[in-house]
Amino acid sequence: MALSLDEADRSQIAKMLAEVPLFASLDNKRIRTIASSFARKRYYDAGEVIEKEGDNPVVLYLITDGSVEVRRGKKTLSKLGPGKFFGEMALIDKQPRSATVVAAEPGTKCLLMTVWSFRAALETDPKLAMGVMRELARRLRQTTNALSE
């Protein structure tokens, strides 16, 4: 079940966002605005499926506690921990989810931003859009390397 955020969550988000490379180039005011766009939080048990490949995308996730595994079939594509986000690809290209994401630890906690807030933030904030561009390019280099191995 998705829960509303409290004050502790809000200050944790702002602090975390300032350290995430994607958001680090933004000023404090923008970071607070983006922090306020995360509307819900959810807790997951180890092994619980957070997103399933092929589903329609609704939200972007920021991990605040625990960790997740990104999988396709039986293969694990990556492991992500606190401060990392996921779910952005399907929000950007408007296609179904490209992979399944599973909580890897008990008490894994994610903050959720709706697709509408995320798209609005990208359109109004060129620096954020450029941060996403750099992150996508970084991941593309990683997958290109993995493909050549």
Binding site: K75, S98, R139, L140, T143, T144, L147
Partner: peptide, 14 residues
């Protein structure tokens, strides 16, 4: 476009 390429690369990887 980058998201599209990443999606294709992930499919190729698996």
């Amino acid at each position: 476009e980058l998201a599209r390429r990443l999606r294709n690369a992930n499919v190729a990887l698996t």
